[in-house]
Amino acid sequence: MKLLDFVVQKAIVPDLVVSSKDDAIKAMVSSLKDAGIFKADDEEGVVAAILKREELGSTGIGKGVAVPHTKHPSVDRLVATVAIAKNGVDFASLDGEDVYILFLLVSPPDRPGDHLRALETISKHLRNENFCNFLRQSKTAQDVYDLLEEADNDQLDQ
């Protein structure tokens, strides 16, 4: 699986400025809605489902990264967006550090394998420090998209 198989180009948020975890999630879901991924009526439900998942344990996995996610019937395939928060967001992460890179995933209820493969793809690239550094330095949505494409094509040095 490749990043651009599920990251929605139009929903990339290169300049996330928020003061809380909840606001970060709301902004990212709103961006997916604006990209036409689901109806406006579903936005609130998707946000609520992601926040409910966070209550079970933070998806701030450490090293400045969070992967908030949920299953939701409003999508018929796995979709995701990426946000870069230059100032960091307090995500109650496992290592206590703020997060700067966020991948938010929404998957159909009946496709757990796709969700695991998306996490695999994301983590594989995040283990490359160049990928993380370049992602955090991205200024525009196009910068982020180009970087994801380079990562997908294995064009980044390890």
Binding site: I61, G62, K63, V65, L94, P112, G113, L116, R117, L119, E120, I122, S123, K124, L126, R127
Partner: peptide, 12 residues
């Protein structure tokens, strides 16, 4: 390591 474990993608 979470990032390491995430690369397993171990299904049921």
């Amino acid at each position: 390591s979470m990032l390491d474990l995430m690369t397993l993608a171990a299904t049921f």
